[in-house]
Design a protein around this nucleic acid. Structure first.
Lengths: 337, 337
DNA sequence: GGCCTGGAGGTATACGTATGCATGTTAGAC
DNA sequence: GTCTAACATGCATACGTATACCTCCAGGCC
């Protein structure tokens, strides 16, 4: 039914392998022959079957992307650049969305249908990376990692980011400070919290349990936690959020409660997604280059695919910085510090 | 290098075809044999090569998704449910992102690497659907369509949605009304504008050029257009936006200009994405079931793949409704109507 | 003018799976 | 006890491409 290279060969009056060679740019085929093949290809509208090619080359030119939730506004900002970077290398993108790594059907990643995998939402200690290693399927962590030295990774210095947030708050004079952190089971959640806590401790400030919230990196996490924080007898004057999406949830809860930001409440997010700069938010945040991080992951993965699998893991860690907007200010004098 | 069904066969003491049959659930293989095969599979960690399978079955169990921009907050709300619906049918998802249909490399869609295609961002008159038809690659339009009867489609009644918006405005007493529409080259942009204009005309209200803006369905479109509308000597009291993302851009511009919504300005969006219900927006909008629309598209496509390609195109059109929140109110008495 | 070199393309085959057909074995029927 | 049918499995092959290897031919060199 479909047109094959054999049909092209017949029309061009050559053998099937010559068609293959002509199309792959093999220098051994004469210019005149190549032209004949190409016109036959055009005449028939021939497109090489990738199944045939995959089988013989043992290569799919496809990369799997494992991500837990596409509707979270954060991930598209990584997946977009990732798609483009992979495309530059001739790879196409297959998306696998499951609530957690452990629910990803490993078979789909090790059946040869992808040449490599990008892990966006792996938990600490996830079994998936180990499984991929065992099967010799190249992979790279992007944004999150499941542990040190497990594999190539493109991440931001989360610890430093947490510290920067803490210093920004303490520098403004805040002392009653809260955190709405990401899950302890994620490297981003854990490291940002750790950096934040350590830098607060340097300033002699502790983080009591009532001022500590944790949850997935979603709008609702920030929204719910902020409601609870505002209901405290003595609410915090400053809140650090695990990422921008959480911060925006918090900001909405504050807005709903009629709490003015930054007058009575300061907020810092993390990531500097485009939404953070929208006028209604003007979110002060810990920024880093998402685009670059995604491209770095693509580069790491492509090199891992090309190179030997025995090279030690590489880690590209970018440096975050404070992006000051309008959700941070000195604590209100009305509030006792 | 990799483990093949032949290795499994050797270990289980059967022939390669028996392994294939055992794994595919062929009733002709004895229970005892099946058990032996299965334990050999487990012992070797065998996973069938999908390239081999694809070649012989002429099927990839993969669906291509063509979308112009993943970072637009709207599309993930379709792609998420779409992914899940396709997965329910055993299909995996390949994402192709290009600024426009015409830049999608058609070869990647007709080389047998996908069994069908979902078109999310086709322009009116796009050549891609025709090309897919010609190549007998099943496809379905989701949200947008390139023309009537071109192919299966899951869409919302955009014309009705536009009418509902107009009626809501006129019902509140607005007479100086503006529109920030989507591109005329998209079915959603065109039909929403048409319905809106027609219903306004029914109420004896025209839409002058100065009150008509158009642009892609992005934040910036709404933002820029709203700035211009607010700079008019006599700004509109109500603005209908092509979709929620545009409306949120407009809302931000209004916020930046210190224009109070809905006191002096009413706004209506389209789609009712989750973001529309955030407290800082509380956007009145034309709602419909995005989840259902995505699932409908998946069903249409799967049936098209299974069935004959000669059946006439089917079109599932869902009915939108007004979701009233806090961006609409009667026009301010200060404003001369 | 024989020999060698290199260019151009053909021949044969492999990739890993699924399946039509042939084969062998066993049990049931008469 | 032979014949047959049904069942379980093996054999052969096809899917469409890429590539190692071989062949053929022309031209240059001595």
């Amino acid at each position: 039914m479909a047109i094959t290279s054999r049909d092209v060969a017949r029309l061009a009056g050559v053998s099937q392998p010559t068609v293959s060679r002509a199309l792959r740019g093999d220098p051994r085929v004469a210019a005149e022959t190549r032209a004949r093949v190409e016109s036959a290809v055009a005449a028939l509208g021939y497109v090489p079957s990738e199944a045939g090619r995959n089988l013989v080359t043992r290569t799919a030119k496809r990369i799997g992307i494992v991500v837990s939730d596409l509707t979270n506004p954060f991930y598209p900002h990584l997946i977009g650049p990732l798609h483009d970077a992979l495309e530059d290398h001739g790879y196409r993108m297959m998306v696998f969305t499951e609530p957690s790594d452990s629910q990803v059907s490993v078979g789909q990643l090790v059946d040869g249908s992808v040449d490599g995998v990008v892990l966006l939402t792996s938990d600490v200690g996830s079994a998936l990376p180990a499984e991929l290693s065992r099967r010799r399927v190249p992979f790279v962590f992007l944004n999150r990692e499941s542990g040190p030295g497990v594999g190539d990774a493109a991440v931001v210095d989360n610890d430093l980011g947490g510290r920067l947030a803490a210093k920004h708050f303490t520098g403004l004079g805040h002392r009653r400070i809260a955190g709405i952190f990401g899950p302890q089971t994620t490297s981003t959640g854990r490291d940002r919290e750790m950096g934040f806590r350590l830098a607060l401790a340097d300033a002699g400030i502790g983080l009591s349990p009532e001022l500590t919230h944790r949850g997935s990196f979603e709008f609702d996490t920030g929204h719910r936690a902020m409601r609870e924080l505002l209901a405290l007898p003595s609410p915090p004057t400053a809140v650090f959020c695990g990422n921008d999406v959480v911060a925006i949830g918090a900001l909405n809860a504050a807005s709903a409660a009629g709490v003015r930001v930054p007058d009575v409440l300061s907020l810092i997010g993390f990531d500097d997604i485009p939404m953070a700069s929208w006028e209604v938010f003007q979110l002060t945040t810990i920024g880093h280059d998402l685009n670059l991080m995604a491209r770095s992951a693509a580069e790491l993965l492509v090199e891992r695919i090309k190179g030997s699998s025995t090279e030690p893991p590489r880690r590209i860690m970018s440096r975050p910085h404070v992006v000051e907007r309008s959700t941070t200010a000195p604590p209100s004098p009305r509030q006792p510090s």
